[in-house]
Design a protein around this nucleic acid. Structure first.
Lengths: 173, 173
DNA sequence: ACCTGAACACCGTTCAAGT
DNA sequence: ACCTGAACACCGTTCAAGT
């Protein structure tokens, strides 16, 4: 007589993301996640290899959501704001992305929207480098902002707008 | 009869940095660090409040070394290369910096060299935003490089040079 | 098939007892 | 004063036994 399933992989990953945002990666224990989905810790191992794998799944889900947000934009400036808004909504998830590397497919998919916008802005030949330039600045700005590295005064919204302006100028030149 | 000191705070932090680089933050256990300095784990608590505090001390020492490297340069391009070289030498330490926020003093000290170079390049009025722009791009590029996020082809050294060029152009414009 | 309690290893941390 | 062994709590993980 099979026991009925009491949870699912999707539910486990979703619970992991919630725990992550509410308390940081240290709080993402098998116990906390199991409790949240209403199961005992050992049961998680039926769907997830180990804690490491769970964190990787959480990162992948986060990257996918980010990619969907970016794909809904059509300009580099729009994407920049979507990117930053996402990071403010899910700071822990955003940070997790820089810790664990995505699969080649997920990476390519997430890069596509920015690459397309870069192609439209600077042409085929320089699209890759332009996309990297933009993404690097964006990632750096946001991660420094989240880490509290911008405490020398000034308005961060204005600094962000200044940066977008400078990136556009750099790519146009 | 006092027992002689068998270690010191500096030695503990240095040992922690070594363990960090050789195995990532997960390997920085009180046991591993204690063993490296030749002491039992409970003895570490005489000099360090807890593991969290040890990681913060490791980050502070890393930031100080980075600051010294930057201060030895006088151009923004020179600093960019020094920054990247440092990150390649101590990838785990570099990553740790984005996780834990520095004290206001350490942050100000580490920012000073870049700020001075930015002032020389664009003048007093825009120095802060220019320094932020430069640092954001640099931090983003390097952390993406370390995270393996640049796997769409192309030469990374060339992409880095392209970026420095674009940053300079953006700040000049 | 999936779920669970029991068990084990490992780590952070405290503390009383040693020198 | 500083160091240590012993002890405790907590977590990841495995596995045999339940349904």
């Amino acid at each position: 007589m099979p026991t009925p399933q009491r949870t699912s992989l999707a539910e486990i990953v979703a619970a992991g993301r919630e725990v992550l945002e509410s308390g940081g990666p240290g709080r993402v224990t098998m116990q906390a996640v199991a409790e949240r989905v209403g199961v005992r810790p050992p049961s998680l191992y039926k769907r997830v290899r180990d804690r490491e794998a769970l964190l990787t799944l959480i990162a992948a889900a986060t990257l996918q959501e980010l990619q969907e947000r970016l794909a809904a934009q059509d300009s580099l400036a729009g994407m920049a704001h979507a990117y930053r808004n996402f990071a403010h909504e899910r700071p822990e998830g955003f940070r997790l992305l820089s810790t664990r590397s995505a699969s080649a497919e997920d990476l390519a998919r997430a890069s596509a929207p920015v690459l397309a916008a870069a192609r439209a802005a600077v042409g085929e030949a320089d699209a890759l480098e332009a996309a990297r330039f933009m993404t690097a600045w964006l990632t750096g700005f946001i991660s420094m902002e989240l880490a509290g590295a911008f405490r020398l005064g000034g308005d961060l919204d204005r600094a962000f707008a200044y940066g977008i302006d400078r990136v556009s100028a750099a790519l146009a030149g």
